[in-house]
Design a binder for these strands. Structure first.
Lengths: 141, 141
DNA sequence: GTAACTGCAAACGCTTTGCACTCCC
DNA sequence: GGGAGTGCAAAGCGTTTGCAGTTAC
């Protein structure tokens, strides 16, 4: 999604285009490790020293409303933000908490079988798979 | 799981058996709607007026450590506690937030196919399916 | 008897809110 | 110019922690 499309999407929904919104939006859309608000804040502060956490949260809510991202609550305390709205598996390291997305045609196919088994119309889904990542496995010895 | 088994499990792990622990434990194991700590507190307060939220949280952590329950972080703010440690789908109403578990042999079978596709050894998983429950669908009209 | 547990209240951390100032349109 | 958006700081809320008194064993 390029600047043009973002501009259009914001305006269409009656929101103004600001430097902060663009920056937050482009940042979150470019990451697939599901950063927390704090991580986004610390990263963006380097380029925009006056940006505030309040603005980060308000913008993230806006992006959620526009359907660009989803919120994933974990029990580590904070919420993570995931810009991938398609069906995928969140691969979560059960030790360090690192996350990456796993996407495959077969997952979609099998998921559709499950959905039709249950017989309801889904609004969305969240699939987490907990495992030990390579780095953490090494350090376990 | 009856009282005898709970007693044994606690003692085996070096924990004392107290009235509060038994009550919290039996309460959470008997529910499949994944209550929050606050809900557990309000319910148990009826029978045990002096029980405290602190004790609820400490006991829930203990039960998690013993592998009897899992914590599910949602973005509504609070954590929910799920006593079903087997593979299942959390059916979450995207409007009212009500949850029930969906379990089926076919889900396990299909999930195993996905796991072997990915090729890792899983530590656990969490599968949420968001949909509109019958009550909420009715009220939408 | 004593170590572990409870209840209470204070502390904590993430998120939300309110408000004066600023900037988009 | 006007209203939406930002930044700041205070408030909110679920959860954790510390400690004196209590209980299991």
């Amino acid at each position: 999604m390029d600047d043009q499309e973002l501009f259009a999407l914001f305006r269409k929904n009656g929101y103004k285009v600001t430097t902060q919104r663009l920056a937050i939006c482009k940042f979150i859309l470019s990451r697939n490790d599901h950063p927390t608000a704090e991580v986004i804040y610390q990263e963006l502060r380097k380029e925009y020293p006056t940006i505030s956490l309040g603005t980060i949260y308000k913008t993230l809510h806006l992006l959620k409303e526009l359907g660009l991202i989803q919120e994933l609550g974990f029990n580590e305390g904070s919420i993570r933000y995931d810009p991938d709205m398609e069906l995928h598996i969140n691969m979560v390291c059960s030790i360090c908490g690192k996350i990456y997305d796993y996407k495959a045609e077969n997952v979609k196919k099998l998921w559709n079988v499950i959905i039709s088994d249950i017989g309801i119309k889904p609004d969305g889904q969240r699939i987490d798979l907990y495992y030990k990542c390579d780095d953490c496995k090494k350090n376990e010895l």
